[in-house]
């Protein structure tokens, strides 16, 4: 069964509709999937989530959540979705317990009724339940917000950048929690600007400037990477990048951790690059093959210089 279906959604802002936040977006998310919407700031992720949670009206196109239309059946949707906005938005002057209780009651339920669902998450903040929500640490706020979004046992959960501004350990914990929720059969849509989190989703949509660049499983996205990829390093990284960019076989080069990732043009061999590395032995230059990850794919999709390649990827995506 389809939990979320989006058809040709268009949303523009501004008086003359000059700013397009979402441009003809379509995708489907089956029930029980952990679906990631990955894209940089300003890609349109929040607009998309606000449309799906009935807070925002799209200019055109339609969308359903759990089979209900976001415009006509908004009342039904509000009963069955959980939404966690990007900004912490619980009452800072109410305590942890009071916040949770409040959200439980306005959904006509109680903490006890759905305690099973939030137990794993809530148990971590329960020792602080008398503390005011505004005085919690970032990670604890996140857990509380998730608990509040889950308290009415939603069938679809929308998490808008839940891990932005949260430390690495808490982020990891948070994704563990999402996996646990997925096992309970809850469909989860999560947006994030972090590429490394894409690999934790069942499927991801790469979004930029209001357009979907690609929808696939994380593995699929990586497998579709059509170029030979190498990693190079030397003692003089900056000079190395500048000079390697001049090579005729090099499509793109960008810093990637300790190494530079070198994207070669389709069908070209590494011979020229090898020669180049040989010539820079003085600076301890070295090279190795690299396996592309989501970030490489995203960079390749984003670069306008490789338009033709993007098209071919898009074709794959729409299939």
């Amino acid at each position: 069964m389809t939990a979320v279906a989006v058809n040709n959604i268009v949303k523009t802002y501004g008086k003359k509709k000059e700013v397009a936040a979402l441009y003809d977006i379509s995708f489907e998310v089956p029930q029980g999937e952990l679906f990631g919407v990955i894209g940089p700031d300003g890609a349109g992720k929040t607009s998309l989530f606000r449309i799906l949670t009935t807070l925002l009206l799209a200019d055109s196109g339609s969308a359903t959540v759990d089979g209900f239309d976001v415009v006509k059946d908004y009342k039904a949707i509000r009963k069955r979705v959980g939404y966690m906005p990007g900004k912490f938005s619980l009452y800072p002057d109410l305590s942890v317990e009071e916040n949770l209780n409040f959200f439980a009651t306005i959904f006509n339920t109680s903490i006890e009724e759905n305690y099973e669902l939030i137990k794993d998450i809530y148990i971590q903040i329960e020792p602080f339940k008398k503390r005011k929500a505004g005085k919690l640490s970032g990670g604890m706020k996140q857990k509380l917000a998730l608990s509040c979004a889950l308290i009415h046992r939603p069938s679809v959960l929308f998490l808008d950048e839940p891990t932005t501004g949260v430390d690495a350990v808490s982020r990891k914990e948070f994704w563990e929690m999402l996996k646990g929720l997925k096992q309970q059969g809850i469909t989860i849509l999560v947006s994030t600007p972090y590429m490394d989190e894409a690999g934790l989703c069942d499927r991801v949509a790469l979004v930029q400037n209001g357009k979907i660049l690609s929808i696939n499983t994380p593995q699929g996205v990586v497998q579709e990477f059509p170029y030979p990829l190498w990693a190079i390093r030397s003692d003089k990284m900056l000079a190395l990048q500048r000079e390697a960019a001049k090579l005729s076989s090099v499509q793109d080069i960008y810093p990637f951790g300790e190494y530079h990732h070198v994207v070669l043009k389709k069908g070209s061999t590494a011979a020229q690059l090898e020669e180049f590395i040989q010539a820079h032995q003085v600076d301890n230059a070295e090279m190795k093959t690299a396996t592309p990850d989501i970030e490489d794919c995203f960079i390749a999709l984003m670069k306008p210089s490789i338009d033709t390649a993007t098209d071919s990827l898009n074709e794959n995506a729409s299939k």
Binding site: L55, R78, S89, L90, Y91, F103, N108
Partner: peptide
């Protein structure tokens, strides 16, 4: 301002 109205708005209240 604190965004709680957003949370309230998605509820069936």
């Amino acid at each position: 301002e604190i965004g709680t109205i957003e949370q309230i708005n998605v509820t069936p209240i």
